[in-house]
Every structure is written in C-alpha cells, then in structure tokens.
C-alpha cells in the first residue's frame, strides 16, 4: 500500500503539468558548473544566479561539479529530472569534449538541450619572446622555416582545438601542441621563451600582455577586442578562424519547451540590463543575443566542426 502511494506520488511528480512555465520556478533552482570555483566560469554562474534569484524570488544555488574536462558535471545534469530546476552552465568544452572522449556517458546532441548563450569573449593568439616578429604576418613567415610549439591548457580543451584551428587557418606547416594542466602554467613556458604561442580568452592573456611578456598576434573571429585595439581580428587579417569562447546554459533533454523559453528569456533580460552589460564588459565579454533555436543550431554546427577538425588534425584521446 505504502509502495503504491509512493509510486503514485512519483508518477504525479513526473507529469508534465507539474512543471508549467507560468508557475516556474516555485522552488530552488540549481545551476551546475562543471568547473571548480577557482575557474572563470563559476563567477558567471554566480552573477546570473544572483540576478535570477531577485527576479524569481526563489533561491538559485550554484553547485560546482568539476572534473574530466567538464564531462563529470555535464553527465550529472544529463541524468537530472527534466523540469528546468537543474541546469548546466558550461563552455565550448561542451562541443569539443565529444571529439576527444570516445566513451562519454551522455550524448551531447540528445541527452541535453541548449537553452541560452549567456555571453562570449574572443580567443586571442599570443606569442612569447621566442617569436621574433610582433605581427601576425611576420609570425606566419617565421613559422614556415621552423617548428612552432603551441602551449595549450590541456589535450582536448577548447584552447587546444582553437590552437589547431588557428594553425590550419594560418597555414603553419609544422606546429605541434604541448599540453599543460591549465592555462596559467601553459603561459609560463611561453613567457619563458620555450614555447611559442598560447591561445586563450582575452581575460586569460591580459595580465601577461599588459606586463609586456606576451604580444597579441590576432584576435580570432570578426569582433575586435576592446582591450587590444591595435590587434587585428582574424577577419581583418584574412584568415578563416571564426571562433569565440562562450558560456552557455543547457537543460536535461525533455525539459518542456515553454520552460526552456522562460529560462532563456529571463536570462536574456538579466544580461541585457545595465548591470548585465556592465558585468559582461568587466569580463571583456559581450552578448550575441541568440534565440533558443539559434543557439541550438550553433551547438549542432559546432559539434560537427570540431569533430571534423579532430579527425583532420589527429586530435584524440582514450
């Protein structure tokens, strides 16, 4: 009898009308961040969470589940109830991981649904003292006659993929990646003159560029970076590397469309507000303002492109 009642309650809770957009959210919402609180993603979640908490009048909790190139936290959210009360805030690792981890416990296309892109910032290719030239053209010329070491924040990280993308786009004949545990140790060997380039977000390379230890060669994509006004964008330099670093929110697949839309719209309201714009600017970031559908297409395209690049450049693990 007791079991039956329990089963009934569970069945009721699982019914879609238990989670309708007009009364969402009526209890605590959890944003899972697949990185440690020390990373650059955690503060973004905390900012958005704090603003949503004011808007929604319920607690928005930030839970950190780091590990295995962000796949532990992602796998966790994939198994959560599809009611919008547990969502994931992650980075391009979402689209690069499937190309390196062959045995992911989730399917990035079918187990989670993209909800909103909550901001983007540019990737910057920066060079250390081992590179003689200060310009992109000079560097490409130099790279024709010698081996280039590209230091990355880890095999299969977005920085690694983007480094390979850049090497292909710039036509570097002999560029090989050297992997580190995270972006800061990777930059030390660049400023020490042992490795040649590092590709990271604007904020990640800013410290060393401002100190004159690294020189920015090119800002990838077609949006100039305010912090590096004199550095050309990839579009200006005529190389095909249209890629950005972004933060995005995902929900377990099966989350009702109206709830996905509500979370998307409310997050956009937060980010378009003055505080939101100010926050993004302080992270050298901006908003693309993609609709739910546009973001979903973006993710699909990204997954395919990274997969192609991984096959082409022989990026693999396992």
């Amino acid at each position: 009898m007791k079991l039956k009642a329990l089963g009934l309650t569970a069945a009721l809770a699982a019914l879609p009308f238990g989670a309708m957009a007009q009364d969402f959210p009526n209890r605590d919402v959890t944003i899972v961040v697949p990185y440690s609180p020390a990373g650059s993603t955690d503060p973004v979640a905390r900012f958005i969470g704090g603003e949503l908490q004011k808007m929604w009048g319920v607690n928005v909790l930030i839970e950190s589940k780091p590990g295995a190139g962000a796949t532990i936290g992602t796998a966790y959210v994939a198994t959560q109830p599809a009611d919008g009360y547990t969502v994931l805030l992650t980075t391009p690792a979402y689209t690069t991981a499937p190309s390196v981890y062959k045995d992911l416990p989730y399917d990035p296309l079918n187990d989670l649904v993209p909800v909103a892109q909550t901001g983007f910032t540019q990737f910057v290719v920066a060079a250390g003292p081992s590179v003689k030239s200060d310009t992109l053209e000079g560097f490409i010329e130099e790279a024709q006659s010698r081996q280039i070491f590209m230091s990355t924040s880890g095999l299969g990280s977005s920085g690694h993929f983007v480094s390979e993308l850049f090497a292909r786009a710039a036509g570097l004949p002999d560029a090989i990646p050297v992997h580190y545990k995270g972006g800061s140790p990777a930059q030390v060997d660049v400023i020490g003159g042992r490795a040649d380039t590092y590709v990271g977000s604007v904020l990640a390379v800013l410290g060393n560029v401002e100190a004159g230890k690294m020189k920015p060669l090119v800002v990838l994509g077609n949006t100039p970076a305010a912090k590096f006004p004199d550095t050309p964008t990839a579009a200006e330099a005529g190389i095909d590397a249209d890629v950005t670093f972004w933060w995005g929110v995902f929900a377990p697949a099966g989350t009702p469309d109206d709830i996905v839309k509500k979370i998307h719209d409310d997050m956009m309201t937060v980010l378009e507000s003055d505080v939101g714009q100010e926050y993004l600017a302080s992270n050298s970031a901006a908003l693309n303002n993609l609709s739910v559908e546009e973001f979903q297409d973006f993710i699909k395209k990204d997954l395919e492109e990274w997969k192609k690049l991984a096959e082409e450049r022989g990026i693999e693990a396992n």
Partner: peptide, 10 residues
Amino acid sequence: MMNGVAPGPN
C-alpha cells in the same frame, strides 16, 4: 579573478 584582478607579472 572573480573580482576582475588579473594575477600575473603585472
């Protein structure tokens, strides 16, 4: 970094 301070040689 959360507070917008970039650690580094500078």
